[in-house]
């Protein structure tokens, strides 16, 4: 096999994950020799956006119909397609807007919305098959490393898929939920960050999005028992990963309420 051909695509996001990648490539000289970066608006002058690619890295969430069409095209031109960072993986920060009706959000930001064609925010798995997820905001280095190695060895990447509590316990951190009464999202949040915030005494705010099949309702109940008001609870479950079913089960009710939806309240 020749050098794997990589394409990088950006949808709605802050581009921080691409910076993370550039940072990563700059600091690990071996990677540059091992891959062939075919397309990436911020990294290359190439216009070879139709590949073909061995690996397409997708950054950002889908917030326009046109992006979805493009994404489908990328999928067809790529052997592997990987969600790169929280926005692509779980909707990330852009999905925070889903909690209110689209028109309300648009008029809050833009004076003239006649040229705005936005739709609700979607993680990319809602449109195309995703072969792997590099979670994180920005995308985490451990999983990125695992992705590159797996690509070179052509094996399935072994991403971190347990929750942040595991990393806290492995580091011997005291539990912030129980010793400090802080509303820590660690029990429902996918790890890989090395429990960065809790190790520094700050509650996890779930920037990596939910762990698969996390029991968010039980944690929301715990927050309520700790005396957290409902809007604070909803904010914690809608900052990242709002469209995922794990967090939507807590924060989605509020979205429905504010749009006068199914709950009719």
């Amino acid at each position: 096999m020749g050098k794997p051909r990589i394409g990088i695509f950006k949808y709605s996001c802050c581009a921080g994950c691409q910076f993370q990648l550039i940072y990563f490539i700059r600091h690990v000289a071996e990677i540059l020799g091992a891959i062939d970066l075919v397309y990436g608006k911020m990294e290359t002058e190439s216009d070879a956006e139709d590949g073909p690619f061995d690996l397409a890295l997708i950054e950002g969430a889908i917030t326009e119909a046109e992006q979805a069409d493009q994404l489908k095209r990328v999928r067809r031109n790529s052997k592997y397609l990987v969600a790169f960072g929280s926005c692509a993986t779980n909707g990330g920060i852009p999905a925070m807007k889903n909690i209110q009706p689209e028109l309300q959000i648009e008029t809050r930001v833009y004076q003239d919305i006649s040229r705005i064609h936005s739709v609700k925010t979607h993680p990319i798995y809602e449109y195309v098959k995703v072969d792997a997820q590099v979670r994180g905001c920005p995308a985490g280095e451990r999983d990125l490393y695992e992705l590159v190695i797996s690509l070179l060895l052509d094996r399935k990447p072994n991403m971190v898929e347990h929750c942040v509590c595991v990393e806290c316990k492995m580091k011997g951190n005291p539990c912030l939920l129980l010793t400090e009464n802080l509303p820590c999202m660690g029990p429902v949040t996918n790890a890989g960050c090395g429990a960065l915030c809790p190790s520094n005494g700050r509650a996890c705010y779930s920037c990596w999005g939910p762990m698969s099949n996390a029991n968010s309702m039980a944690l929301a109940q715990k927050f309520e028992d700790m005396g957290l008001p409902p809007d604070e609870i909803i904010r914690r479950f809608s900052l990242f990963g709002f469209p995922t079913y794990e967090f939507h089960m807590v924060a989605g009710e509020e979205a429905a309420r504010s749009s006068g939806g199914v709950f009719g309240r």
Partner: peptide, 10 residues
């Protein structure tokens, strides 16, 4: 109530 957080086993 169970969060599958694995704290018990850790």
């Amino acid at each position: 109530r169970c969060l599958s957080c694995t704290n018990c086993t850790m």
